[in-house]
């Protein structure tokens, strides 16, 4: 049987959105989503909540989460499924595709850059990477477990494309943190 979406679609989507907004406004700060979701495996509650909050019929989605998750996402978000290169939202529960293969927008319309939602094993603030950039007073620290080794280098190599780029939302369990394209990351 299909697992349910938000119990209260209006208030739950609002509170999840505020957490995502906070995460993108203050990169590296870990936010907890009290979504109450029990999505099908392999989706974590936070991953499912982010997509339920933001994706709909207007946003083509690409994911690698398997058939059960596919049916759940199609039913609750109603988003069309597409290839990674033409998706507005890309969900990766296994190692994410190379950033160069995703939409980066154009110099005139950089907002068309994709949002990459990566499900990782764990997120912990206070140690690990050193983050700088807009939204960060001096430095935020973020430890991420479960990202492939090449991710930071891949991201750094595309830094020169700004304002084009891909924004990343990391999800683990009921927690999220975000890395907008402006954030500079140094390994701690």
């Amino acid at each position: 049987m299909m697992r349910p979406g938000f119990a209260d679609p209006v208030q739950d989507a609002q509170s999840c959105f505020r957490a995502v907004l906070e995460a993108l406004s203050r990169p590296g700060r870990v936010q907890t989503l009290a979504s109450g979701l029990t999505p099908p495996a392999p989706l974590h509650p936070a991953t499912a909540a982010v997509l339920l909050t933001l994706a709909d019929a207007e946003t083509p989605l690409h994911h690698d989460a398997g058939a059960e998750a596919d049916a759940w996402l199609r039913f609750h978000c109603g988003c069309p499924m597409t290839a990674a290169g033409s998706a507005a939202f890309v969900l990766a529960v296994t190692p994410p595709p190379a950033l160069a293969t995703l939409q980066a927008g154009t110099d005139e319309e950089p907002e068309r850059g994709a949002t990459l939602v990566i499900q990782v094993e764990a997120l912990e603030a206070g140690s690990g990477w050193r983050l700088r950039g807009p939204g960060i007073e001096a430095e935020h620290r973020l430890a991420v477990r479960g990202l492939p080794d090449g991710f930071l280098a891949d991201r750094a190599a595309r830094r020169g494309l700004f304002p084009r780029g891909v924004d990343v939302i990391l999800c683990a369990g009921d927690r999220i943190a975000a890395l907008p394209r402006t954030t500079l990351i140094e390994e701690g």
Binding site: A13, F17, L21, L24, S25, E58, E111, P163, T182
Partner: peptide, 28 residues
């Protein structure tokens, strides 16, 4: 509906807000 707008409109505005935050100063 809560806060007047329908949920589809809110989602569209929310997506625009997130991209606006990600590209500081750019008009979305």
């Amino acid at each position: 509906n809560f806060a007047y707008l329908d949920e589809n409109t809110k989602r569209m505005i929310r997506r625009a807000l997130l991209k606006a935050v990600a590209i500081p100063g750019h008009q979305v």
